[in-house]
């Protein structure tokens, strides 16, 4: 039982990071119908920026919490600028091109960012400083630490905040309008370019926070960390229904749970025939089954229709 509980905790923590990153994919897809494959690298850049800023500030003996706060803001600002630039350079000129073209530039941007990060921060793994006393708590035999609790609660708060932005604010209304029909929105006086830029910046800010969460939780940062995370988060977005905000959240948490329960129990269920080496196979099998029965994902509508 305590093992089961532990796997649920593992899954929820991992899943809330997936959900935050998945939101970035899904917002862009909802509005542009474009898969921004460079999003995973934005997560990585966020973590790297925070790491650099922390290293400098702690070196100047700034109090840890102040340093952390400043680094979060810096990472978010940096990623927002990056998100804006990516959209401006790689996607806007191709907005009316065939759909495959921006997909290729997305992959190109991803490779460029990865290599840039490798040149700036080097090839080695950086250990991420531990800033708060990370006490562990026992929960019915299972273990959870402060950072994991913060990750989970912060992710839920951010998701709630994002829902409020999309459904309650002027910007949110403009986003939904652009998602529904770009031309009609333009005729109604919505500045499409501004809305799309802001969407990219919003998604990138979430990515920066996710990057910081991953680095703080696992105590490492590396130029390659965004690739696998991005792929998983994209899967989560598809699982929940790409283009749908609630879908991304549900998909993220679900993928986290499927992975941890799959890795933990697949061996026991199949009597050792399949082991944890089938962890990813298992996750993708669930994805395939969901897509067969619900081709547009679990909550499959696009952003706009979910007003």
């Amino acid at each position: 039982m305590e093992i089961f509980l532990q796997q649920i905790i593992n899954g929820l923590v991992q899943g809330s990071v997936y959900a935050l990153v998945a939101l970035g994919y899904t917002m862009v897809y909802g509005i542009l119908g474009l898969i921004n494959f460079a999003h995973g690298e934005v997560v990585m850049i966020g973590a790297m920026l925070a790491l650099s800023s922390l290293t400098v500030l702690l070196g100047l003996s700034v109090p840890p919490l102040l340093a952390l706060l400043f680094s979060i803001i810096l990472a978010m600002a940096g990623c927002m600028a990056l998100g804006y630039t990516i959209e401006r350079i790689a996607y806007r000129p191709l907005r009316h091109a065939p759909r495959l073209a921006p997909l290729i530039t997305a992959i190109g941007v991803s490779i460029v960012l990865q290599n840039l990060a490798m040149m700036i921060w080097g090839r080695e793994y950086h250990s991420f400083p531990q800033l708060i006393v990370n006490a562990t708590h026992s929960l019915g035999g299972a273990v959870i630490n402060d950072i994991q609790i913060i990750i989970f609660i912060l992710a839920l708060l951010i998701m709630a905040g994002l829902m409020a932005v999309v459904h309650r604010t002027r910007l949110g209304r403009a986003m939904r309008a652009v998602a529904e029909n770009q031309h009609a929105a333009q005729l109604m006086g919505v500045d499409i370019n501004r809305v799309i830029s802001l969407t990219f910046m919003l998604g990138s800010a979430l990515a920066a926070i996710a990057g910081l969460m991953v680095s703080a939780n696992y105590g490492l940062a590396h130029y390659y960390m965004g690739f696998v995370l991005g792929l998983k988060a994209f899967t989560a977005a598809v699982l929940g229904g790409i283009g749908n905000l609630r879908g991304a959240m549900l998909g993220g948490l679900l993928l986290g749970l499927i992975e941890s329960l799959g890795a933990g129990y697949i061996g026991d269920i199949t009597g050792g025939f399949f082991g944890s080496n089938y962890q990813d196979v298992f996750a993708f099998l669930v994805l395939i089954v969901v897509l067969v029965f619900r081709p547009s994902g679990l909550l499959g509508e696009r952003l706009a229709e979910r007003a």
């Binding site: 093992i3 532990q6 796997q7 593992n10 899954g11 923590v13 991992q14 991953v214 696992y218 490492l220 390659y224 960390m225 690739f227 696998v228 992975e259 941890s260 329960l261 799959g262 890795a263 933990g264 129990y265 061996g267 082991g275 944890s276 080496n277 962890q279 990813d280």
Partner: peptide, 21 residues
């Protein structure tokens, strides 16, 4: 127990929990 991961993974909590059992 004989569990598995990949050379690109960074999260091992699930397999480690299975090992713990």
């Amino acid at each position: 127990a004989h569990e598995f991961t990949t050379d690109k993974a960074y999260d091992f909590t699930a397999v480690l929990t299975a090992v713990k059992g």
